[in-house]
């Protein structure tokens, strides 16, 4: 797993992909930070975090699209799948490599807080909570993207597919609001990633949310392993 993690992580910086993603992340978060926090004369960063949902939704697929799709296309999966490594090891290596890049992006958020603290008193607890929330959200997008990447050998399809899944995640709430209340609505509401995330940015950091996010990540990783496993049997 470590060998794959290391290779994939390095690969982000031998192509422009890693740089582009980080640049986009820093640019958007910087603009939001300026517009919603500095310019408004507020120390509340929750709007910045909420807006990052949209940015990640669009750009995390950039990060995950090639993970497994390119392996299949270049037939390098014949190396990884015939090496003495478990499927879970392969999937985790790929997941963590992309996730690490994402986490390097997120690391800038507390830095903004630090910048603010030179001007005013900053309440660190919400910033910390929001950062953890963003890390969890990113986990879902990365795992989801990895899953889609395992389904195709075309990077563009992988990117568009995972963007589509992310869009569905966002639109689920709009859909839910149109459904009359009942079990079905409650069920859909409780799997809404967006409202869970909004809850965290608004300052409610509950254990159930954390478990929810981790479960979704786990499900996507599990499904990815199954896809690789299924490929052998096809």
């Amino acid at each position: 797993m470590l060998a794959i993690l290391k290779r994939e992580f390095k690969a982000y910086f031998t192509s422009p992909l890693g740089y582009v993603f980080l640049a986009i992340f820093y640019a958007f978060s910087g603009v939001f930070f300026w517009v919603f926090t500095l310019d408004m004369g507020s120390t509340d960063m929750s709007s910045v975090f909420l807006m990052m949902f949209l940015v990640l939704m669009v750009f995390v697929p950039l990060l995950t699209m090639r993970l497994l799709a390119e392996d299949k296309k270049q037939k390098t999966d014949q190396l990884t799948l015939t090496a003495p490594v478990s499927l879970l090891g392969i999937v985790m290596g790929k997941f963590l490599a992309a996730y690490l890049i994402f986490a390097i992006g997120v690391a800038v958020m507390p830095l903004y807080g630090f910048v603010m603290s030179t001007f005013a008193d900053v309440s660190w607890l919400p910033i910390f909570g929001n950062t953890v929330g963003l890390l969890l959200l990113g986990g879902i997008f990365v795992a989801g993207g990895l899953f889609v990447s395992s389904l195709t050998e075309n990077q563009m399809i992988a990117a568009i597919g995972s963007f589509f899944i992310n869009l569905m995640v966002l639109l689920l709430d709009t859909l839910v609001s149109q459904i009359p209340s009942g079990i079905f609505r409650t069920a859909l509401e409780s799997i809404s990633v967006y409202s869970r995330y909004a809850e965290i940015t608004s300052g409610i950091f509950s254990l159930s949310s954390v478990i929810f996010f981790l479960s979704v990540i786990f499900i996507f990783l599990f499904l990815t392993v199954r896809v690789l496993e299924k490929k052998r049997w096809a």
Binding site: K6, T82, A83
Partner: peptide, 30 residues
């Protein structure tokens, strides 16, 4: 799999790596 060295029909090369980086990767992978 630990007992096998496999050269598939199309060699499974990571084109963005140097030869040595690649072999080191394979070394760790195995």
């Amino acid at each position: 799999k630990a007992l096998i060295g496999y050269l598939p029909e199309q060699p499974p090369l990571y084109l963005d790596m140097t030869v040595m980086e690649y072999l080191k990767f394979v070394y760790r992978l195995k």
